[in-house]
Design a protein around this nucleic acid. Structure first.
Lengths: 153, 153
DNA sequence: GATAAACCCTACAATCACTGTAGGTTCAAG
DNA sequence: CTTGAACCTACAGTGATTGTAGGGTTTATC
């Protein structure tokens, strides 16, 4: 069962993450090692590697560790309805959609700023002016505030 | 000069942010109050309000407080070349562009997941499968990791 | 001029998802 | 059996806020 057991460093390298992150996931209840050596070092089996794969993928999708724990729990009791999983993903897609919209507005603004600046002195630089003047924005992205968004690093 | 002096609460409300955030900006060297009352309470003049406007706008654009401090300093010595400001904005646009690309890939994936799920039980739910299986991704967004991105809340 | 409510003060802890560090232990190769 | 790389725990730091504790100040009303 624990045939090709990986050390924490090997698993981390294969996943492109730091060992600390793995220990962090363990502390968060996302990923436990399959076992430990006599000396206390973590060993990860193929199942753990797969679980990590899921976790990393979900993180890239912007899911929080909390949400991932939800998803993993849901997947564990495999007789439950798919609707809960669906709802989480659907909510996530909404967030992604909104973030894209916002970023595209910002990109447009930044482009406009750059096109108006032509390498003069700061006094006549439109960029700083544009940043200071909300009114000139192409889109009035008013300060909405009920909306958190997990970083998509 | 300090005619229409605002309290921290009034300024915060007018900007749609919390008073703690203003105190945080002060600690970070971004925004000092124009003065204090005899009792030690902060008072902000019109100039401070404008500076805050700039700060909030730049934050919405994804600039870090560090970058904003740079921009403000640059704007202060108004005889310097515009190129430094330009470079900061250009770098920022690159980051925004990359984030949009990633998010659009993610959106596509999430859509695909949802279309494959049709409200069954978790055992036959494609969503969890898709999240676990990187290989089935439309785009192989490999684990690039040299890239930070400030949250765009 | 007293009182009370609303506001403000400092200082510090918590959040999230990690990353870094200190000081010590274990493993695998030679 | 020694060496050095990798591992261990425990804890502090990151960035941009937000929350809390325990007080002081301002303002309006009586």
């Amino acid at each position: 069962m624990a045939d090709a057991a990986l050390s924490i460093g090997q698993l981390a390298q294969s996943a492109g993450i730091h060992v600390q992150t793995l220990r962090y996931y363990e502390a968060q209840g996302l990923l436990a090692p399959s076992g430990r050596t006599a000396g206390g070092q973590r060993r990860y089996g193929a199942q753990a590697a797969q679980r990590l794969h899921f976790i990393r993928h979900a993180r890239e999708f912007g899911f929080s560790t909390e949400q991932i724990r939800e998803l993993l729990d849901l997947a564990g009791e495999s007789s439950r309805s798919c609707e809960e999983v669906d709802a989480i993903v659907r909510r996530q897609r909404e967030l992604v959609r909104r973030r894209i919209d916002l970023l595209q507005q910002l990109e447009g603004e930044l482009d406009r700023m750059l096109s108006e600046c032509s390498g003069g002195r700061v006094t006549e630089c439109r960029v700083l002016e544009a940043l200071g003047d909300h009114g000139r924005c192409a889109s009035a992205h008013g300060h909405a505030q009920a909306d958190d968004d997990p970083p998509a690093r």
